[in-house]
């Protein structure tokens, strides 16, 4: 590789810029395993006490149930978003649909629309259909809000597949469906993987919708659970416990990122040819 500029100063600059973030993350992890004397910054003893919430429900309530709810929400988002996006993305990319441009513009607008502004309307709809305060309601709302993004991303991936490949498949005697299944889908697999991870992360991280549309304690997801923790007991405010639950909440996200970081880059690298 030819060097157009010196790398060393750049590294120093980046280190300085990222130092605050690194320090914060460092202490976040550190504090979950240690205790510091009051008023001191540096810890003086190792402890696992902050992690006892994992096995002792009396500390903060059942964290596993909340985690399970989060998992259900996140996986359901994948189940809704990935299949629909892969079909709809193909349709808007390849098929000569009536109102195709209008539809694309609509997707774009929906994608850019802040979900919060829809909340009151969504609330009424759910109330009316009896889905308020149910997990299904939250899943449907979250899934549909994410669809525009998914469709747009998948359209980008389909656009990158050469038109001739499809025509070659048809010429070889395969039906459109067979061509889609056996020739086109394998080529957008990176997109499907990336979108799945994205959908999972989005579902896992969602706070607002479950908080407002399913406030019942049965449906509590981890993000809401974490928030309750802050509000629950203002007096015995255990910062390190709070951090531990936070790390527990973040762990799957970090793992997914480590596993799929290259695939996720795909979305913003090759996939988004509008």
């Amino acid at each position: 590789m030819t060097k157009n500029f010196a790398i060393f100063p750049l590294i120093i600059l980046l280190t300085i810029v990222s130092l605050p973030i690194a320090v914060m993350y460092g202490f976040l992890i550190l504090d979950t395993f240690t205790d510091a004397p009051p008023g001191e910054l540096w810890p003086d003893r190792f402890t696992l006490a902050h992690w006892r919430f994992l096995w002792d429900p009396s500390v903060v309530g059942n964290v596993w149930k909340a985690a399970g709810n989060s998992l259900i929400l996140a996986v359901s988002i994948i189940v809704i978003v990935v299949p629909i996006s892969s079909l709809a993305g193909y349709a808007v990319s390849r098929l000569n649909l009536p109102f195709r441009r209008f539809f694309l513009a609509g997707i774009m607008v929906m994608h850019a629309f802040p979900a919060v502004t829809l909340l009151i309307g969504v609330f009424f709809v759910l109330k009316f259909t009896g889905l308020y305060n149910t997990m299904i309601g939250v899943i449907l709302v979250k899934g549909s809000l994410m669809l525009p993004f998914g469709i747009w991303i998948m359209k980008g991936f389909y656009d990158a597949v050469p038109w001739e490949i499809e025509m070659a498949g048809v010429q070889d005697g395969a039906s459109r469906l067979t061509v889609f299944r056996r020739l086109i889908l394998p080529q957008v697999k990176p997109g499907l993987v990336a979108l799945s991870v994205f959908a999972f992360l989005d579902g896992w991280g969602e706070y607002l919708l479950p908080r407002i549309l399913a406030p019942g304690s049965d449906m509590e997801v981890l993000s809401v659970f974490l928030n309750e923790l802050v509000q629950a007991d203002q007096l015995g405010y255990d910062f390190n416990l709070f951090k531990s639950v936070g790390v527990f909440y973040t762990l799957p996200v970090i793992i997914l990122f480590v596993l799929f970081q290259n695939r996720l880059m795909n979305i913003f690298g090759g996939g988004t040819k509008g």
Partner: peptide, 15 residues
């Protein structure tokens, strides 16, 4: 699909 024509495309269009 029903015409039984073989086509070679300019960019080959291999899978």
């Amino acid at each position: 699909q029903k015409r039984n024509v073989g086509v070679v495309f300019q960019n080959y269009a291999l899978y």
